[in-house]
């Protein structure tokens, strides 16, 4: 999997903390490997966006991976998720698709 940030201009959620928590959780997973978002071999790309504008959710960005998960403020794939639960919910989603 790979992680791509929107740009973090004025995030409504703590993107850096969520990204850090997610990477820490991924390191504990045997079958999940974190790669660069520039990689050509990405199974799942997590796009972390600070608000509903979701500037990082671009067609060309999503095209880098087989599938993508988009965090936009307190939502994951447009489903409301409280900020405190975002990294945990992402980890669960990644476990299911690995």
């Amino acid at each position: 999997m790979a992680l791509k940030y929107c740009g973090s201009c004025n995030p409504l959620i703590n993107l850096s903390q969520i990204g850090h928590d997610l990477l820490t959780a991924i390191e504990k997973e045997d079958d999940l490997v974190f790669v660069s978002p520039e990689s050509t071999d990405i199974n799942t790309l997590v796009i972390l966006c600070g608000c509903a504008r979701a500037c990082g959710n671009l067609i060309e960005t999503r095209a880098r991976a087989k599938r993508s998960i988009v965090v936009a403020g307190e939502t994951i794939d447009m489903t409301p998720v409280a900020e405190i639960n975002i990294s945990g919910t992402l980890t669960e989603k990644l476990r299911k698709v690995k």
Partner: peptide, 8 residues
């Protein structure tokens, strides 16, 4: 920094 790369 990855968080700001898209902006800067």
């Amino acid at each position: 920094a990855p968080e700001f790369e898209e902006l800067l």
